[in-house]
Design a protein around this nucleic acid. Sequence first.
DNA 1: ATATTGACCCGGA
DNA 2: CTCCGGGCCAATA
Length: 121
Amino acid sequence: MPAKPKESRVQEQRRQVLEAVRAVPPGQVAGYGEIARRAGLPGRARLVARILSAGDEPGLPWHRVLRSDGRIAFPPDSPAFAEQVQRLRAEGVRVEGGRVRGQRAAPSLDEMLWSPPGGPR
DNA sequence: ATATTGACCCGGA
DNA sequence: CTCCGGGCCAATA
């Protein structure tokens, strides 16, 4: 007789995503798609967004997750937007016009292949 | 059961 | 820069 139905698929994926989000160090950012990839779920940026929208997991650095173009995922006039900007700035991230400057949320293929030594400049 | 909704992504026009 | 269209898929209606 089947005991525990293991861990449901969604729950396992959820765990993976949360892990990937926690892995983003302070002062750095990552795109939803980027997180999905790191979690072993390529092409599933939406799943990442949905999981974060749940709002559980205390202490999760959700504010380090942005859109691939470096923009905050909330409407500019929303409270959540303001909070995310504030949290990012508190970590030394430069945010201008609802967009993070100074680093890339989703590195382009070119960047990854060329990866200029010494970093972009 | 089908339909709509998202803290999304990406290439092309 | 914007707009468009396809891909993605769990949750909600």
